[in-house]
């Protein structure tokens, strides 16, 4: 899934980067973009193929960090740092915490490969194809002049988030609230059961 998303991002970025002027003479930023995109793609593939479970989490760090670098190259500074802060600083740490708390053997784990591999590949390819189609369709020949735009700055992001996209934003926060309450209910319920068990 992650690999699919990464691939989609890379492909979309390639298209948007090359769609405008300078198709045959890419700028330095565009070259860097493609190279980092390849790194992201490679590490994303490693996330799903490595047989060492903690290594998968660490490759995920590389993937997410690479994505942050891509955001930076697109001048979306704010999004990039939030990506690092939330995904690397919190989500991956939480992931590693969970892994270490349950089981994180050093070396290969054989039971990581399951028979559901082929359906998973199918889903990933399907998702990639869908995203590619949508993105290519949406940004067909759009070109972003990185030198002039400030579309990615914190001010522009904030304005579009709280003016144009405020309803989805609030709905998302309601979703998070629901998840939070659900977690509390689950943990409390178990504590009560434990209390009765004793």
């Amino acid at each position: 899934m992650t690999a699919g998303l990464a691939a989609a991002t890379v492909a979309a970025a390639d298209l948007s980067g090359r769609g405008g002027p300078g198709f045959l003479s890419p700028t330095g930023a565009e070259v860097a973009f493609v190279l980092i995109g390849l790194v992201v793609l490679g590490s994303a593939l490693l996330v799903v193929t490595t047989s060492q479970i903690v290594h998968a989490a660490l490759w995920l760090v590389v993937t997410l960090g690479g994505l942050a670098a891509e955001y930076l190259l697109l001048t979306a500074e704010f999004i990039a740092w939030v990506q690092v802060l939330i995904y690397i600083g919190a989500v991956v740490v939480l992931l590693l915490f969970g892994l270490m708390l349950t089981r994180a053997p050093i070396g290969r784990s054989t039971e990581l490969d399951s028979l559901k591999r082929w359906p998973a590949v199918l889903v990933a390819v399907g998702a990639t194809a869908t995203l590619l189609t949508v993105v290519v369709d949406a940004f067909h020949s759009a070109y972003l002049d990185l030198g002039k735009t400030d579309d990615g700055s914190a001010r522009v992001t904030g304005e579009s988030l709280f003016r144009v996209w405020v309803l989805p934003f609030e709905v998302l926060s309601v979703l998070l609230l629901a998840a939070l309450i659900g977690a509390i209910v689950l943990s409390r319920g178990r504590a009560d059961a434990d209390g009765k068990g004793r």
Binding site: V54, L58, V61, E77, F78, W81, V82, V84, L85, I88, G89, A90, V92, V93, L96, M100, A104, I106, S153, A154
Partner: peptide
């Protein structure tokens, strides 16, 4: 840096990964 506060806090949080990796990899 434009989003300086987020930059410093984000990057500082990454440093902890080092401890996590070291602790796990030590067996």
């Amino acid at each position: 840096i434009d989003a300086g506060v987020f930059f410093v806090l984000a990057v500082m949080g990454v440093g902890v990964l080092g401890s996590l990796m070291g602790g796990w990899a030590s067996a």
